[in-house]
Design a protein around this nucleic acid. Structure first.
Length: 104
DNA sequence: AGGTTGACTCACC
DNA sequence: TGGTGAGCCAACC
C-alpha cells in the first residue's frame, strides 16, 4: 500500500512548508520519493482530511497557478503576505519554498 | 479491462 | 513564469 505512505509523506511535507512560502506539486512529489507523481500530490491533497490542518493553500503548480475552482485560496495566501499577480499567479521567484534552506 | 480525466510538468514557441 | 502540446500516473467510471 504505497499509496497510503505516499499521501502520508505528502501531508508531512506540506505541513513542513514555512509561513509565507509556497511549494509546487512536483517538488513535493520529489521529496516524497516519487518524482513522476506530481498529479497524485494534487489528488492526495484533494482527498486530504481537514483534521490534519494541512496548509494546502501553500501548494501551487509549477507555474505559480492556484488550484482551479478554489477562490478562497487566494484570500488565504493574501493572509500570509503572499501577493498574487493579476493573472492569479504567485511570484515563485519570491515565495517559492527553498527546501535546501529548510533542511539546512 | 480499457478509455477518460485531472489541485501536474516539461519542451518548445 | 506569457501559451500550447505531449508525456505521466493513479483514480474513476
Amino acid at each position: 500500500m504505497d499509496r497510503k505512505e505516499f499521501s502520508n509523506k505528502v501531508y508531512e511535507i506540506v505541513k513542513a512548508i514555512p509561513f509565507g512560502k509556497v511549494a509546487t506539486y512536483g517538488m513535493i512529489a520529489m521529496l516524497s520519493g516519487y518524482p513522476r507523481r506530481s498529479r497524485m500530490v494534487g489528488q492526495a491533497l484533494h482527498h486530504a482530511p481537514d483534521s490534519l490542518n494541512i496548509p494546502c493553500h501553500r501548494v501551487v503548480n509549477h507555474q505559480g497557478r492556484l488550484t482551479p475552482g478554489w477562490t478562497d485560496q487566494k484570500q488565504l495566501l493574501y493572509n500570509e503576505g503572499i501577493h498574487l499577480k493579476e493573472n492569479e499567479c504567485v511570484d515563485l521567484k519570491k515565495y517559492l519554498w527553498d527546501v535546501a534552506l529548510t533542511f539546512f
